[in-house]
Amino acid sequence: MAIPARRRIADVLAFGFATLATVFGLVWLTWILWTTLSEGAKALTPALFTQMTPPPGSSGGLLNAFYGSAVMILLGLLIGAPIGVAAGTYLAEQGRYSKLASVVSFINDILLSAPSIVIGLFVYELVVRPAGHFSGYAGSLALAMILLPVVVRTTDEALRLVPNQMREAAFALGMPRWKVTWQILYKAARSAILTGILLGVARIAGETAPLLFTALNNQFWSATLNAPLANVPVVIFQYALSPYDEWHELAWAGAFALTAFVLILNLLVRFLARKGARK
């Protein structure tokens, strides 16, 4: 039975469009990655890791920015991840059938997509204004708040995937609930929870908006968290918008390092998730 030409053409057009749409999406990815790679490779020098961010018009490195970013991500992780795992545990275990858990789960999903600049303003009001100055602590806190919903969601999902028989067997042996969770469920879900935390780190590593009003930036080496702290995203932001070529180059180098870090983490997460699924 022949299909009328009009319907056949509509069919071909739709499928041509779908293919083009996919190519369209992939073209942007390639274009952006290529730009970052080629511009970043040009700017990549050993000085990047040994020198501080320079004053306008001279060359330098990003050592203080790398240090600041690393410290803030680490501290954000230390604050955000345990709270996130605990809250995720409540959603999946203690509170699985409670009203509170469904409300928290709902709000958490909204926080996942909420604008991160708002978190920056919140921490500004909460910490920076009362303290009277920008600080690495404030930046870490903002990053922790962005990490939190990611970890909550993935912990919740990871624990729900643990078969119920494991819980029942453990309870049947007379284990108290905390021990069941701690020694059996966490162990069973360990790689999935870790994957979620890595995903959260990838997310906060590139966050710029929440750091603008919390950690701000610092042109000099400063190890203390109780003062404005240099960090890669804000350095990229300020240097890219500056009129100086040397700063542009450093911004590209920072962009390259940031993108490489985030993409490698993402690929690692996918690899781990696939390995976990095969098991």
Binding site: T22, G25, L26, W28, L29, W31, I32, L33, T35, T36, A202, A205, G206, E207, T208, A209, P233, I236, F237, A240, A251, W252, A255, L258, T259, V262, L263, N266, R270
Partner: peptide, 17 residues
């Protein structure tokens, strides 16, 4: 996966590009 990587690229990179 490639399409989803678009979501992983930090927004500041989109800005610079």
């Amino acid at each position: 996966m490639a399409i989803e990587l678009l979501a992983a690229i930090p927004s500041i990179i989109y800005g610079m590009w």
